[in-house]
């Protein structure tokens, strides 16, 4: 490699610093290697092709930096969305799951009786808290349990509200539905956050 080639490669390496950090970390080394190879090939064809190769890079630089910045922004937007989603899932599940877990445990300690439905609720509350660590598994358990609770709640409400007027029946059924809905929603948030993070 001649001094001129070495100089042009060094200039290109400096210019790579203009790219956004994430893009640079991922591609800069490869880009420099490709540029060196292209420059070497061009030099074999003469001085002018080598200069043209360098000028072509220079001319394309603003557009490609702009494109790389756009890509980086999209990545950042996605990371921010995941962060927000995860925060919402954790914050809400901490309150909701934690509250239900404490309520369930205190009732169990007071009465000494563990009904199947209470055990199920405790398990679901626990799964919401476990989803902090195992987002997909915890989230899926919470979602499935939530769906089951919704169904049970609606069915129970419907049966117990027989003989009431239709609006009252609907209201009671809605309350029954809401019984499992938070598990469904917060579990879904965890699963969504994990899916986005893996994408």
């Amino acid at each position: 490699m001649t001094d001129v080639m070495r100089f042009l490669t060094a200039v290109y390496a400096r210019l790579l610093r203009l790219y956004p950090p994430g893009f640079r970390a991922e591609f800069a080394e490869e880009m420099l290697a490709v540029f060196s190879a292209a420059l070497e090939d061009a030099r074999a064809a003469g001085a002018w092709p080598a200069v043209r190769c360098f000028l072509r890079e220079l001319a394309a630089l603003p557009a490609s930096i702009n494109q790389a910045s756009r890509i980086e922004r999209q990545h950042n937007t996605r990371s921010y969305r995941i962060h927000r989603l995860r925060f919402a899932a954790r914050y809400n599940s901490l309150w909701f799951g934690g509250l239900l877990l404490m309520l369930g445990l205190s009732r169990f300690l007071r009465s000494g009786e563990m009904t199947p439905i209470r055990a199920f609720q405790l398990l679901l509350s626990l799964s919401l808290l476990l989803a902090w660590r195992w987002e997909r598994t915890g989230g899926l358990i919470a979602m499935l349990g939530g769906a089951l609770l919704c169904g049970l709640g609606m069915w129970g409400a419907y049966v117990s509200s027989q003989g009431e007027t239709l609006p009252v029946q609907l209201l009671i059924t809605l309350v029954g539905l809401l019984w499992g809905a938070p598990f469904l929603i917060f579990g879904g948030l965890f699963v969504r956050a994990r899916t986005l993070a893996e994408a």
């Binding site: 893009f23 591609f27 880009m31 394309a60 630089l61 557009a63 490609s64 790389a68 890509i71 999209q74």
Partner: peptide, 17 residues
């Protein structure tokens, strides 16, 4: 079509995404 290194890697990054 003669791609510059920057254009190529911008495109590759997008295609990877």
């Amino acid at each position: 079509v003669s791609l510059s290194t920057g254009t190529l890697y911008g495109a590759l990054s997008r295609l990877l995404d």
